[in-house]
Design a protein around this nucleic acid. Structure first.
Lengths: 225, 225, 225, 225
DNA sequence: CATGAATGAGAGTTCATTCAT
DNA sequence: GATGAATGAACTCTCATTCAT
């Protein structure tokens, strides 16, 4: 729905009206596109953003450089796809956590912890999200695509917001709290990954737990008020 | 005590056993080194990390590219120096704020706000601190230097920690709170600069204020308890 | 008599000994070949030589890249075909102009003006003719094909030559004059399209008119002598 | 006075206030820049525009690719320099011819023939002039530089224009005639180099001579009238 | 006939770094 | 100390062409 304004480029994925042969070809294409994406992810997770060139990706995927451009119109489209995937995994994780939670407070804790843990366990996924605002140029990350990605990020936080409202917080309060929680999470993780937080000999997990406790205490109080 | 583990490299600054002539030369060298640093900072603040090449720095400083290597052994050493400077400015700002504060609670608020504002007003200084974990390679940021920089960062937070203790928090509590505060601050700023926080239609300053209020409420309660 | 010296290559068009089914297929193929050509022309006229890649042509024609090679053995064969077409249009235009002319002088003027106007109004057709000597490599423009194209170009000039002879010029004189006229035309147009002629603040049409007047004055004098 | 808007790029040539050492360095630099230019010219004359890449130029000049960019900011700057040189040679040739001519008619013939011969003998110089309007992009050929080159082209034609006026033609007539002459010249040469003129079994030189005779006849008549 | 994936070479350009002078 | 030329590897991206299916 977004991305390629240049119609002469191959699209990321086709859709309807396909015969059985088309379907097989399309499936094959998707597999290959995915394998490129896998190579890109592994390279990026291992080498980091700067060192991951199209050459490296191609080599890891077993392709020539030019072949990559059959699947992605630019390097940035690769990263956008990677981020898209990452956000899907994040959402899945959050949803999965919600299934195990019943009460509102528990839902807040469950979703928030899933969110935090996802990025704690996969630090590069955090980088992924931050690259896009730093170095990205026009092609590959259209405003539309950017918006789409933003929406998925917000989706991951939505359950927390809902649960807070369910606890009795006003819409405004819930929004404020979820934003603050997001910021706190990001801050802890960035510091943790940077190595800056070890400086205080503190585990980010403990700090997150403490913040969460305060949040829940506030929200339950808010419910009573 | 810091920097160059490779003794054959040009040092960042010379020291002892110098005659008057050496001293004058040394002073000159320092001035010039500083002018390079100024050029680097201006370039980096203006163009960002990626676009700031040694060529650009040299040009802005009125030097040739090669000349830079008389003062800095690598590009990364330049950035390390830049970060060092940045941390000094941060400390100065915090100290300055403390001079205007009397009560403990006021000291917490004053120092924390100075800290927050410094990075809010100078987003690039934040980048500076985080670049080092992203793209930097071994040379230029030795563990020793890294430690030294960490210490200065910690120095900027120390007054807050002290004021919290003065309010009655235990050493352990104060450390936890200041770390959490630091994380919250960074999280808010990163999200704000990324544009990811506008998504929630929230101003980072308001959120910071709210967090600070909660912190002070906790710490005053802690004092009474 | 023309084109493919390499018999294993796909021919530009098939001919003899075809059954009714072959005929229909052949007709279809010709239509499709033509549609590729249309796409190529539109792309080339719009984007120019450099920007018109096989990819672009294929996309505009609604084909895949590989499919183009069913109809044309190389990019250059496409251009050769394009040039061929262009020359046909040129001839048609000249012939059409002649229908409206009666006297010999009028025929000279009419044909020459048609020639000039054709290229003035369609600058890309001029480019087409000149690309072939500049960048083209062996394949695609065989000497035989080149000769064939030259003949069609000459055909477009022939009526002028004939009319000059009819006015009384010797065969040799007529040939000289028509060649000079051709050169003058091309020179004016090239300069005009380059923007180099605006430098003299002169319109190419005025200059063409002046040249034509002189030519007719010469030829009528030649007739009397 | 034109070209490099990006001040961090090295200029084409420096000027004043130079010590003896600077002078020698500058001389050396000029020699080297010239040698790059020579390589570029030879490559271009031999291989044509399309096949002459920066790599080829570098290789012929005995440099690495990157080294070229010490002397020229882009490929197009190389071509602009080449064209500049070419126009200087053209002007020199025309001036030299004028020294040997006394009467006005003779001056017209001498200058015009020098112009014609220059491009006849060096066909690639003609290509050079036409490349710049075809494929050139923003960098390297600024409007200012383009104007400067245009002026030099015009300078080469000016003596002819002056001589025509001296023969008695009005300024307007002289301008028209010189423009037409220029067009005729270019047309003959383009056709000749393309091989399109051999088709008429005519030598471009004869045709040029004929045109010149007519021009002189017109201008002498114009003088009498 | 048509597909579309893949090749492989090549394009222009940038970069941190080195080193003889 | 400073120059500035030079390196050499790296970068993203484009292209005409091929070929198994």
């Amino acid at each position: 729905m977004a991305a390629s304004s240049d119609a002469s480029r191959r699209p990321a994925a086709k859709k309807a009206n396909a015969g059985p042969r088309d379907l097989r070809n399309q499936a094959l294409a998707d597999v290959r596109r995915q394998s490129v994406l896998d190579a890109a992810r592994s390279a990026f997770f291992e080498l980091g953003m700067e060192k991951t060139s199209m050459r490296v990706i191609a080599h890891r995927a077993g392709y020539t450089v030019g072949a990559l451009y059959s699947y992605f119109a630019s390097k940035e489209e690769v990263y956008a796809a990677l981020l898209g995937e990452s956000l899907e995994r994040l959402n899945a994780r959050v949803q999965q956590a919600l299934h195990r939670c019943t009460g509102d407070a528990e839902r807040v804790r469950g979703a928030a912890t899933a969110f935090f843990d996802f990025y704690r366990e996969n630090p590069r996924d955090l980088d992924l999200g931050f690259y896009l605002f730093q170095g990205m140029s026009p092609r590959g990350l259209t405003p539309a695509l950017n918006e789409k990605l933003n929406v998925r990020l917000r989706d991951a936080l939505r359950p927390i917001q809902d649960a807070l409202e369910a606890q009795g917080l006003s819409a405004r309060q819930a929004l404020e709290e979820v934003t603050a929680l997001f910021a706190h999470t990001v801050g802890l993780l960035v510091l943790s990954h940077t190595g800056r937080i070890r400086m205080f000999k503190q585990a980010s997990q403990d700090l997150f737990g403490a913040y969460l406790r305060q949040l829940l205490s506030r929200s339950s109080r808010g419910a009573k008020a």
